[in-house]
Computed example of a mutant assay.
Amino acid sequence: MEFQVERAVFAEAVGWAARALPTRTPVPVLGGLLLETGAGLLTVAGFDFEAASRVEVDAETSGTGRVLVLGRRLLDICKVLPDGPVSCAVEGTRFTVEAGGTRFGLSTLPYEEYPALPVPPAPYGGVDAGAFATAVGQVAVAAGRDETLPVLTGIQLRLDGGMMTLSASDRYRYAVRRLEWKPESTAADGPVEALLPARRLLDVTRSLARCGAVRIGLDGGGLLGFEGGRTQTVLRRLEGRLPAYGALFDMAGAAVAEVEREALAEAVRRVAVVAETNSPVRLDFTAGEGVLLRAGYGDDVAAQRLPARLSGAEEVTTAFNPAYLLDALNSFETPGLRLELLGQGQRALLSAAGDTGPSGAHRHLLMSVRQLL
């Protein structure tokens, strides 16, 4: 097995496939990348049972062949190779990489012990790659990090007709984003739901953001496929589903405040400098006076007033974990923000100013804290 490929192309392909490699594994071969050559093609693939990534690139090849090598070691080598053509070959039980007079040798792993890669599911529809990456990023901030509660580490994907809904929650916040997508004519009549690992899905969509379009595949089991250009990723679904958010997002009787998003985010960052760990930032909204932000205790305090328009109440006070509030504010792209407020220790629903429908494009629910200054 021999092939020659440009360094930039090779490094990008190896980097893409290496995204599926596990950080730690008791199965040594799962730390490997599978390289296969065909007629003018090099395929690089990685797999860890939860995700599989595969990419094809053009290369000068001499026949067909395959080799399994340590993925992260190969990735490190690709990062230091000089620009220009890279020549690779299998020599007995060694895989050699040579470029610009520099030569590396890697031990090969036993291919016969490597598990079969999952077959990519049949296409189900497509979505704009950039919009998809943005939407996933907007909800991923609300996904949990506690691996003992795997359901809360996922993003719920719902496909219903021409609408895709993404949602995530860690119990203290709940983000929902809707966007249009194009189902295939063979797509099922009813809605389809799948819970996917948030970190994996975020990584995949960011990598595919410049592909123009992402094709989504579904199978009857536990796999979803994402294909863009000449790259494919298959993710295994998480068991379970997120709690329903319909009742949580019912904000009947809430006061409504409208503020400039970037100004509020900057003010939160500024006053939170004096906040102790886990202490809140307090927001006092007053009709005709705007909003006063405060943080800190005793002599170590900070305050800033901003313009805001309040309706539905003369005044309302609430407080949030500053990191959670900043995550929510930064997940929006619009200049204006609408906050529906139920008061101290209760829910607050954020949405883009002017996006007042019951199923707005992007909504972020935060639980306020009871502890005030």
Rank of each mutant, 00 (worst) to 15 (best):
172 Y>V: 10
11 A>M: 04
220 G>M: 06
164 M>H: 01
143 A>R: 02
229 G>Q: 11
231 T>Q: 15
35 L>K: 04
96 T>G: 03
54 R>Q: 08
314 E>K: 12
8 A>N: 09
319 A>N: 05
182 K>E: 15
234 V>G: 11
45 A>H: 00
110 P>V: 14
26 P>I: 06
322 P>N: 10
35 L>T: 01
155 I>S: 03
285 F>G: 07
227 E>I: 10
67 V>L: 09
154 G>M: 06
147 E>H: 05
237 R>M: 15
366 L>Y: 05
195 L>G: 09
252 A>Y: 03
259 V>P: 00
291 V>L: 03
269 R>N: 05
65 G>I: 06
47 F>S: 00
196 L>D: 07
4 Q>L: 01
85 P>H: 01
156 Q>D: 07
217 G>S: 06
3 F>N: 01
270 R>C: 02
361 A>C: 04
68 L>T: 05
256 V>N: 07
161 G>M: 04
152 L>P: 02
141 V>E: 01
65 G>N: 03
282 R>Y: 01
209 A>F: 05
361 A>W: 02
67 V>G: 03
167 S>G: 13
318 T>R: 00
58 D>K: 12
228 G>N: 11
265 A>N: 08
252 A>T: 14
293 L>G: 02
32 G>R: 01
202 L>T: 14
86 V>P: 09
53 S>T: 09
230 R>E: 15
187 A>K: 05
248 L>C: 08
320 F>Q: 10
48 D>Q: 01
364 H>R: 02
299 D>W: 00
3 F>H: 00
362 H>N: 09
257 A>T: 06
139 V>L: 05
288 G>Q: 09
95 F>E: 08
348 A>F: 01
284 D>G: 04
271 V>T: 05
316 V>E: 03
262 E>Y: 02
235 L>K: 08
206 R>D: 13
188 A>E: 15
28 P>I: 04
97 V>A: 06
302 A>S: 12
66 R>T: 07
312 G>R: 10
235 L>Q: 08
343 G>K: 07
324 Y>V: 02
156 Q>M: 10
59 A>H: 01
51 A>L: 03
137 G>K: 04
357 G>C: 04
145 R>I: 11
225 G>M: 08
116 A>R: 14
105 G>M: 07
164 M>W: 01
337 L>R: 06
89 A>R: 15
12 E>N: 14
138 Q>T: 13
287 A>S: 14
75 L>A: 15
7 R>F: 03
351 S>Y: 00
156 Q>T: 00
294 R>T: 14
228 G>W: 13
301 V>E: 14
254 A>C: 12
201 L>S: 08
225 G>V: 07
134 T>H: 13
324 Y>D: 12
161 G>H: 03
332 F>P: 03
361 A>L: 10
174 Y>A: 06
9 V>Y: 01
